[in-house]
Structures are given as structure tokens and as C-alpha cells.
């Protein structure tokens, strides 16, 4: 606990999200409150359909909460925010653009200076190991490679907050581990605030400073777990730490309890 409290990067205050269509009326989130400190990595886990993705969309302003308020970097979220980077489960790349030009889409849309954007793109390509594939079209890249391109695109404008919605959900186990290690390193190097939605408990604990466990629909926060691991983590070593094991088993219990409650 630090004495000097920094203003939170993300403040979620008593938020509810209700989707209403002609046929159905779904309460996706109910009474969700949490703060995320600047530079913090928060993982969000929960059963399918508990509103995890909705939560990220509320933070970025892609959706409006039905009740409550969301503040990002000190200001209220009124509409889509430009000061975030977003990564979806699917890479969502433009088929007709090469890897590099997909990354640069971010710059073109924002009207960033070309030179600066090109230099930043080269830096990110280097950082994510995409060298040699800059001029490949998305269909020529593997799933892991595509997701790296999506990550570079999300980081191009150095966003203070990075929102990731099951970014590695479609990858095989080995590639996923590799991406976890890379994401951890990138987070460490850039000191970005990260909100990561995931289905993998191991991923959530390895990457997160805190893990938010959610209940089934309507999604509420079951518990927030502080991960008692050092800020800089080695993958293999972390896996065998007692703190890692206790956190994962605790989360597994919570999720089990949550799903069996009905």
C-alpha cells in the first residue's frame, strides 16, 4: 500500500448493462464497481456470458452503461474513446492490407505524422518478432502472427490503457504461452494499464496484478484477488510458485462455486 494515492486510470462505479431487444431483455452486468490504477494489469475471468466483454466496451465507450458511470483517465466516458488500444479475440485485420499497413491503419485514422508512425510501427514489429512478415497479407500469416499484428495496431499510438478481449482465445496452447510471455514483457516495457478478459485461469494469474472473478449473468464481481507474485515474472518459474498455485486453485473454486450455484 502506497501512501500517495494516484488517481485511478479506470473507475467503474455501480455499473449495470441491460440489453433490450424485441424478444429478450437481458441484464448483462449488475452493480459492478472497481478501480484500476495506472500501470496496473487487471485480468477478468468469469463464465461465458457474464458480461466481461461488455465491461470492456463500457470502459472504451463503445457501449453506454444502463446505470452507474465509467471514468477513464479522470474524465467521464461519454462516447467511443480514442485514448485506448483494443484487441479482440479475432485479429480483425483488413484482408487487403499487408501486416505493416494494417498496423498503420491506426495512424491513418488518427492522422498521426507519417514518419513518426512508420518509426513506431518498425519498433513494434521488432518488439513482437514480426520482422520478415511486414509485407505479408493476413491470409499468409498464422493465427499467432495475425494476433501480433492486431497487438501492434493497438499499441501504435502508445495508448495509456490497453483493452484485450480474449486476445489469445483462438490460439493453440503453445502459441498462447508464447504470447503470454511476450505480452508480459511488452506490458513491463511500456507501463500501459491493461484490462484483459480471458477464459484461462493460468493466463489471468500469470499476467495480472489482480484478478477479477465474475459471477454468471447478471455479471457481478464475486471477488478480486491480489496476485502475490513479483511484478516481473518468469513464465516457468511462476508456474511452480506456491502463490501461483494457491491463486489459481482459489479462482477455480470461485468459478466452480459460481457455476454450480444455480
Amino acid at each position: 500500500m502506497t501512501v500517495t494515492q494516484q488517481a485511478p486510470a479506470v473507475e467503474i462505479q455501480k455499473v449495470a448493462a441491460r440489453f433490450r431487444s424485441k424478444k429478450r431483455d437481458v441484464l448483462a452486468l449488475e452493480n459492478v464497481s472497481m478501480d484500476v490504477r495506472p500501470g496496473e494489469f487487471v485480468s477478468i475471468v468469469g463464465p461465458s456470458g457474464c458480461g466481461k466483454s461488455t465491461l470492456l466496451k463500457l470502459v472504451s465507450g463503445l457501449l453506454k452503461p444502463s446505470a452507474g458511470a465509467v471514468r477513464l483517465l479522470g474524465g467521464p466516458v461519454g462516447g467511443p474513446r480514442k485514448d485506448v488500444g483494443y484487441v479482440f479475440q479475432r485479429a480483425a485485420l483488413l484482408e487487403w492490407r499487408t501486416a505493416r499497413r494494417n498496423i498503420l491503419l491506426q495512424a491513418e485514422m488518427r492522422g498521426m505524422p507519417q514518419k513518426e508512425a512508420a518509426a513506431r510501427a518498425a519498433e513494434l514489429i521488432e518488439m513482437t518478432g514480426l520482422q520478415g512478415f511486414e509485407d505479408a497479407l493476413p491470409h499468409e500469416l498464422s493465427g499467432g502472427m495475425q494476433q501480433r499484428v492486431a497487438l501492434c495496431r493497438a499499441l501504435l499510438h502508445r495508448p495509456p490503457v490497453l483493452l484485450m478481449d480474449e486476445p489469445f482465445g483462438a490460439l493453440d496452447a503453445l502459441t498462447r504461452e508464447q504470447m503470454n510471455v511476450e505480452l508480459h514483457r511488452i506490458w513491463h516495457e511500456t507501463s500501459t494499464t491493461v484490462l484483459l478478459v480471458t477464459h484461462s485461469i493460468a493466463e489471468a494469474v500469470y499476467l495480472g496484478n489482480r484478478v477479477v472473478v465474475m459471477t454468471p449473468r447478471p455479471g457481478t464481481i464475486a471477488e478480486v484477488i491480489d496476485v502475490e507474485l513479483p511484478r516481473r515474472r518468469n513464465y516457468a518459474a511462476t508456474m511452480s510458485q506456491p502463490a501461483f498455485a494457491s491463486a489459481t486453485s482459489h479462482i477455480r473454486d470461485l468459478l466452480g462455486a459460481a457455476t454450480h450455484r444455480e
Partner: peptide
């Protein structure tokens, strides 16, 4: 893709 575009302003 369109949501992404709106976060790009």
C-alpha cells in the same frame, strides 16, 4: 472492425 475504427477516432 467498425468498433475498432471508432476507438481510433
Amino acid at each position: 472492425m467498425l468498433q475498432l475504427a471508432s476507438t481510433m477516432g
